[in-house]
Every structure is written in structure tokens, then in C-alpha cells.
Design a protein around this nucleic acid. Structure first.
Length: 569
RNA sequence: CGGGGCGUAGCGCAGCCUGGUAGCGCACCACAAUGGGGUUGUGGGGGUCGGAGGUUCGAAUCCUCUCGCCCCGACCA
């Protein structure tokens, strides 16, 4: 591709809308342009990268025996009503009405459609196992699209759905995808981690996420420093702490704490550590409001809390009126003593003694609170986020916390959808059995952003070889004044292409500095500089995007170096 | 949706408080010089100041409404 014919415009300045580095670089390098909130056009350069991601995903899915198909992006409401998700999915689902007043949605995922296919096509266990996949545009009307294509509303996803006769079959299909996903992210040159996860709205039991590690990641991952345990913080379990509860040493006493509505201000006022406090959160329950009590320095984990019997799911904080009604005071001073609603205590409270908590009275807290004496010592539950240093659940060592970008997710759905939609096949005994399903997603568009988060420097993007929009950038110096350079560059351009390489030939009549800067911004792995001074000795200058300095090599040596088969780094 | 902020040339911004002929840098076009790290000079094109209504002799500026976007919280590939 000749640069002069490629229509690429790069930006020197950072657009104000871009906050994280991948978004900034994607805009600056001309990969994407924004149309509206959460909607992006993939420009020619960006599309090349996208196609390369898709190619790797396709190859590995095909290798794993999955069958590609393409389902409609628009789906009829009836299908979603069968599984109850038409109501459940809420405003995330973009709904529309056709000219006949029929309701449709723009698919955010395709369990219903594929299950409909399965129920029509699959009759016998002999047709199993089967795994269908597609690479397709999805739409989720996200509450807050942000970070460019990282969390956009429209995005491209590879989604796959496996069908088996029973749980063992599902487990095998699931493991195949586990292997395929590992191969995909490895090939893409990404540093990733596989973590245990919550299956969320999609439903099902076993579920793992593939996270690209990056500080800008939206998810927190807890991992062991001693074994291979890793989990999304949403599901990482905490344990009842070892040891007995210390004996009460202080008397219960009510103290004035004017304006101390937060743990932070309370600690500042009383000159204490948050570990010595107990916070009481009033949330909606299945049968009236309930309270959740945590150590002051701990964070509530909504995913865990909403699974507790009696707590409303999804978790919702009680409004101020409800808080006033149950505590008899304004929000900010709630405490378990004298509270007339169910209270769920976090495990970590099991070893707390002589702690400070709200007194259910404005500007008042209790100090020296103790279980057994001031409060009933209750059973504890797991409702907090793990923190660095917590013991590894069921494993060795302690947990560390890292941030990750979720690029893949595999689930064992079981028969949730097949039952709801009556998708059955006959087993070898002639009995109808609900299909055992798995579903497997990869965020194609998000991978591009994640790769940049992990591979860039202050000059721009550094593409891992399999993702690069071009393999080589050819930079002639003063080509428009030197026939020698022009001829050499043109013939090199042809030869490199003949070797099967994707070459970006920077034939613009601009100063070398401009070409270098653009080449580095758009992150092409291999750079060849053609100049009069090196040509005289039949030499060229070569530099990999990751190299500190360039090397001057004989022309033949470079052509040899850039064999299609050997440039995968 | 709640809270905060911003809409002025393709991009980044100033001007608004205190109303009086719409500016700067980058990018773009032309010419010249330069010619291995975003070079320099001269000239030029490009704006219904997000939109509507109001106040005023006069509105980018003040008022009301509205639309869009960004950031902080609850969602997910």
C-alpha cells in the first residue's frame, strides 16, 4: 500500500475525549473515528488490525472443531420472551419496532437464537457434540460507554455455543474452548491470565474469564503468589479469620461524633483506624430492608451479597427514606445495636472486639462494642471484596490484586436455555433430553484496545506481529529528488510484496522526520529506510519498532531477514 | 439514572465574568527555502460561536429551554 493512496490522517494532538492511552493512540493513529457515544467507525488502518484479530480467532476456532455460521443481528422479541430475558435484560437491550408493530431487539448476545437453531436442527445425540460460532456485531446500550472501543455500545464479538448430551460432554466441550482461547491469546502476543468468574446475567455454573493484564483494566483480579489460583475479585472467596475473638476490654459507650457520616471522617475525628470500625449498610431485601455489616476498611461485594438468601438481587442500596425508617436517624449513623431488621455480618467481623459502630442516632456512635455482650454473636457470611494479603481460598499463599481487561469469557450454561426453549434430543435410550450448553465469547474489538494498552511507548503503538496492520514500513529518504532512491524503493516495495508481506510504502513528499514519527505512531513492526548514502554500498537501514537503534545491513541480508515465515515477533 | 464539567474552524484551546466587526497553535491549500527525527518563511481557504427562544440599539458573551458530549458511581466481550 502506498501511503499517498491510503488516505491516512494522523493527529499530533490528543483529542480531549480520550482518557486512556489505547483510546488516544487509536484516535491519533487514525484507527477509529467516533460517530456518537459508544459508536465508532473502523478506518482502513484499524480495520486491517481487526481483520487480523479475526483471522487468528477463526483459525483457532476452526482448529477446535467449531463451525462458523452467521446469525441475524436483529432478533424477534418472542424468542427473548421464551427465556424471560425480554423483561430481565432491562435497558441494556436496544429494542425496536418494525412497521407491523412487532417488537425486536438488536442482539447483545445470541443464546436464544442459537438455541432456536439447535431445537430445530438437532434431533439425536448422534449429532453431538457440536459447537457453532460467529463473529458478529453486537449492541448493548451501556449505561456509560467509555474508553473508546474498550467499552463501546456497538462492538464485534466472537460468540460460540456448544451443545452436548450431558454434563460430561459439556465439560469436554468447555475444556476444548479453554485450550482454544489459551492458544488465541498466546498467538496474539498478549499477556493474559485466566480467572474464575461469576456467570452474571447469562446464567449457568462454571465460568472463567480471560483477562489481558493492564493497569487501566476495569476489573480487579485476585491471584495467588504461591499457586495458580486466580479469580475475578467479584467471586474470590474470603474465609472466616483464624483465631478467637478477643475478650471485651472496653465498656460500651455512646460518643458524640458530629458530622461523621463516613468511615473516613469518623476515623479522622476519633483518631482511630478503619479496622476498628464496623459499617452497616442498609440494602433492599426480598422481604423488606436488611442490613449488611462489614469491617470499616472493607468493601462490599455486590455479586456475593445478592446471592445471600434474603438480600434482593440485583443488589440495591436502600434509599434515604428507608434508612431513616429502619434506623430512626439520617443515613450515616446506622449500627447493628437495636436494629430491628435482619443483619448479615461479614466473616471478618468474627474476630472484631471493642469496635466502633453507628448508634442509630444523628451524630452518635458507640465505642467499645462487643459481640456476645452488646450484640448477638451471629453466623458470618462472605460479602466483602478480598484485599491484598488475604489467604488464597482453598490454596496456598496470600492474594495479590492486579487489574485486567476482560477479553474472553467461557461459561457452562447447562440446560437453562434448552429447558426454557424446549431444545431436546433423543439419547441412546430413546429419551428426550435437554441439551447441555456452553457459551464462549471473545471481544474482538476490545482486543485491539487491550493490545495497545499492553504494547505502546511514548511514541505510539507497538503492534505484536500477528496484529500489525502492515508487516513492514518502507521509508525512502528524499525519494522525490533522487532517482536512485526512487528506483531502489520501488523495486524493494515490489520484492517485499512478492515475499507475501504487507508493506506500507511511505511515498509522500514530506520530510523524513514526519515519516519516522508516523511510522512509530502507527506501530509497524519492521522499518526499512532507503537512502542515497546507504544505497551506494547496496545497504539499507533496518529497525524493529522495539529496537533502540537501527542497523545498516546489506540488501540481501534484509530481504532474508524479512522472510514471511520468520517475522513473527 | 444520580452527581460534576464542557460545547467557539478538522484537532487542541483563548475570548464569556465586565455585551460593541471572532482569535491563537496544529492540520489543510499555494509559493519559496530546506532536505536523515513532526524544518522555516510568505500568502491563503475554512466558523449559522451545539440548537431554539428571550433581554438589548447591539449577544459567542446575560436569561430560559433544549440537544449533544466528557468525567465520577451501579453494567459486561
Amino acid at each position: 500500500m502506498r501511503y499517498s493512496e491510503f488516505g491516512l490522517t494522523t493527529l499530533k494532538e490528543v483529542p480531549a475525549e480520550a482518557e486512556i492511552v489505547s483510546h488516544q493512540l487509536m484516535l491519533r493513529a487514525g484507527l477509529i473515528r467516533r460517530l456518537a457515544s459508544g459508536l465508532f467507525t473502523w478506518m482502513p488502518l484499524g480495520l486491517r488490525v481487526l481483520r487480523r484479530v479475526e483471522a487468528v480467532v477463526r483459525e483457532e476456532m476452526d482448529r477446535a472443531g467449531a463451525l462458523e455460521l452467521l446469525m441475524p443481528a436483529v432478533q424477534p422479541a418472542e424468542l427473548w420472551q421464551e427465556t424471560g430475558r425480554w423483561e430481565q435484560y432491562g435497558p441494556l437491550l436496544l429494542r425496536m419496532i418494525d412497521r407491523h408493530q412487532r417488537e425486536f431487539c438488536f442482539g447483545p448476545t445470541h443464546e436464544e437464537v442459537i438455541t432456536d437453531i439447535a431445537r430445530r436442527e438437532l434431533r439425536s445425540y448422534k449429532q453431538l457434540p457440536v459447537n457453532f460460532y460467529q463473529i458478529q456485531t453486537k449492541f448493548r446500550d451501556e449505561i456509560r460507554p467509555r474508553f473508546g472501543v474498550m467499552r463501546s455500545r456497538e462492538f464485534i464479538m466472537k460468540d460460540a455455543y456448544s451443545f452436548d448430551i450431558d454434563a460430561e460432554g459439556l465439560e469436554a466441550s468447555y475444556q476444548k474452548m479453554h485450550v482454544a482461547y489459551t492458544a488465541i491469546f498466546t498467538r496474539l502476543g498478549l499477556k493474559f491470565r485466566i480467572v474464575w468468574a461469576d456467570s452474571g446475567d447469562i446464567g449457568g455454573s462454571k465460568s472463567q474469564e480471560f483477562h489481558v493484564l493492564a493497569d487501566s483494566g476495569e476489573d480487579a483480579i485476585a491471584y495467588s503468589d504461591a499457586d495458580d489460583y486466580a479469580s475475578n475479585i467479584e467471586t474470590a472467596a474470603t474465609q472466616v479469620p483464624d483465631g478467637d475473638r478477643p475478650i471485651a476490654a472496653q465498656e460500651l459507650s455512646k460518643v458524640e461524633t458530629p458530622g461523621a457520616r463516613t468511615i473516613e471522617s469518623l476515623c479522622e475525628l476519633l483518631k482511630i483506624s478503619a479496622r476498628q470500625t464496623l459499617k452497616t449498610l442498609i440494602v433492599e431485601g426480598t422481604d423488606g430492608p436488611v442490613a449488611l455489616a462489614l469491617r470499616g476498611d472493607h468493601e462490599l461485594n455486590a455479586v456475593k451479597a445478592q446471592k445471600i438468601a434474603g438480600v434482593a438481587s440485583p443488589l440495591k442500596m436502600a434509599d434515604a427514606d428507608t434508612v431513616s425508617k429502619v434506623t430512626g436517624c439520617e443515613p450515616g449513623f446506622a449500627g447493628p445495636i437495636g436494629l430491628d431488621i435482619p443483619v448479615f455480618y461479614d466473616h471478618a467481623t468474627a474476630t472484631m472486639a471493642d469496635f466502633i459502630c453507628g448508634a442509630n442516632a444523628v451524630d452518635m456512635h458507640f465505642t467499645g462494642t462487643n459481640f456476645g455482650r452488646d450484640l448477638d454473636a451471629a453466623e458470618t457470611v462472605d460479602i466483602r471484596n478480598v484485599v491484598a494479603g488475604d489467604p488464597v481460598p482453598g490454596g496456598k499463599g496470600t492474594l495479590s490484586i492486579a487489574r485486567g481487561i476482560e477479553v474472553g469469557h467461557i461459561f457452562q450454561l447447562g440446560d437453562k436455555y434448552s429447558r426454557a426453549m424446549n431444545a431436546t434430543v433423543q439419547d441412546s435410550d430413546g429419551n428426550d433430553r435437554a441439551l447441555s450448553m456452553g457459551c464462549y465469547g471473545i471481544g474482538i474489538t476490545r482486543i485491539v484496545a487491550a493490545a495497545i494498552e499492553q504494547n505502546h511507548d511514548d511514541r505510539g503503538i507497538i503492534w505484536p506481529a500477528p496484529l500489525a496492520p502492515f508487516d513492514v514500513v518502507l521509508v525512502p529518504i528524499n525519494m522525490h529528488r533522487s532517482d536512485t532512491v526512487r528506483e531502489a524503493a520501488e523495486s524493494l516495495y515490489q520484492e517485499l510484496q512478492d515475499q507475501g508481506l504487507e508493506v506500507l510504502f511511505d511515498d509522500r513528499d514530506v520530510r523524513p522526520g514526519v515519516k519516522f514519527a508516523d511510522a512509530e505512531l502507527i506501530g509497524i513492526p519492521h522499518r526499512l529506510v532507503v537512502s542515497e548514502r546507504n544505497l551506494a554500498a547496496d545497504e539499507l537501514e533496518y529497525r524493529h519498532r522495539r529496537d533502540e537503534d537501527s542497523r545498516v545491513l546489506k540488501r540481501d541480508a534484509i530481504l532474508n531477514l524479512l522472510q514471511k515465515s520468520s517475522i513473527n515477533y
